[in-house]
Write a protein that binds this DNA or RNA. Sequence first.
DNA 1: CCGCCGCCATGACATGGATCAAAGAATAAA
DNA 2: TTTATTCTTTGATCCATGTCATGGCGGCGG
Lengths: 253, 253
Amino acid sequence: MTHIDFAYSRDPNGQTNGKTDPAGEIHPCSACTVRTLTVCAALEAEELRRLAEILQTTRFDAGHTVFGEGDPAETLYNVTSGTVKVYKLLPDGRRQITGFLLPGDFFGLSVNDSYAYTAETVTPVSLCRFPRRRMEALLDEFPKMQRRLFSMASNELAAAQDQMLLLGRKTAKEKICSFLLLLSQRASRRGHKTNPVHVPMSRADIADYLGLTTETVSRTFTQLKTSRVISLLEGNKVQIQDMDDLLDLAEGA
Amino acid sequence: MTHIDFAYSRDPNGQTNGKTDPAGEIHPCSACTVRTLTVCAALEAEELRRLAEILQTTRFDAGHTVFGEGDPAETLYNVTSGTVKVYKLLPDGRRQITGFLLPGDFFGLSVNDSYAYTAETVTPVSLCRFPRRRMEALLDEFPKMQRRLFSMASNELAAAQDQMLLLGRKTAKEKICSFLLLLSQRASRRGHKTNPVHVPMSRADIADYLGLTTETVSRTFTQLKTSRVISLLEGNKVQIQDMDDLLDLAEGA
DNA sequence: CCGCCGCCATGACATGGATCAAAGAATAAA
DNA sequence: TTTATTCTTTGATCCATGTCATGGCGGCGG
């Protein structure tokens, strides 16, 4: 959630963990591999230039907390490579991951002035940082950007409703199948191949995303494997044996 | 979900079910009781006038389907009185209510060109209807409206995340307590008294909102009643005996 | 190469909430 | 007012998933 497709990307270069640098003289967006997915897709050269002007790039190792729930929300982020998870916690430590953010996704929107969730890297990650104030100024200046952002927020809302249906009404098996399909579809939108799906997150993270336990996630994977719906490949890849089967299983049909 | 605070309201007059009429000569927004909550709050007189120009008002009885999942999304709606529920269904009939819409809430946003959920009245309801095309034109013309709408969508997103935490990680008791608090807080934002909370929806609807069954909802209510946390009053009202207790119970603290 | 540590899988068992069933309440219809 | 009809409550039982415990595998540091 609150990951909004809105991004540019360039080759990760050798920046050290958490160190940021100004985008520099070259126009970074020109090399962006995910720009078409995002707000930037709709921008004129001038708008793009202005956006690039206010942005910085950052890299983080896996397992790094980008910001915590309640922190002052001064920056908007854009994933350019890697995977980020965002989650909320209950006082006793129960966790709900509300979204996994892939390259091209946008996050860090806040309601009041503090983040409503924690953002943590799942893999090594490259991010664009947009200072919130300057970003808001740009949005005011370029209604087209504003409109695009709004339409992306609407998409998010729709995805959130799907996730509520999943969390509230689907069985463990349906949840896992839906999750694999989601990853597959998101890969497809990014122009990656949809079938051996890359699943970079741990069983525990999947569990906290689907409202399950790691044990149940694990068991359900083996069950799907046993019934020849999927097979597990090297390098956190999942091969979908029968896509139609999986689609049906995801909805209990 | 996808209820966005954005409204005007006027006294319901004797319109028959589903019949709409042009807003007429009088400026309806001037009598609006919920305008301050909504997009309209930010509008200049001129903008407000233009908005009123494109709007129609409608009334529906309880239990009426305003639109169904998959219907072409040609209209945006605004609740001015009563309660609406929006939900998604699985093929076998399992249902997840993703939101209850109260006066001042906005709904009908769509991703592609069809609604992603069904909207149905819980009580008799008055609505404003905005033709989508004309509304979009207005948004382009008035960036301030666009911005306000975006900020409301962000709020929705935050609420959606809270709901995911609830659905994925809270117990039945925590869910019910959270729900009562939510209703109380929403009443408060509307300037109604927060304590005897009005709960206009059925046990079945509450269940489908919280990812439970009616039986569990019912049992949990009696359990809370027995332990003196709440008491049930006439007319679908719930009296909260100890607000702090309820707040703790809602988070498992 | 070995040993530690985190992740994953699997088994045994427990349980919160679902399901099935049926009796009150409330509301609407006659 | 009486009778249907629908909603709510409550009880008895079941089961999907959680909890607890253990072993294996793989990667990483020494």
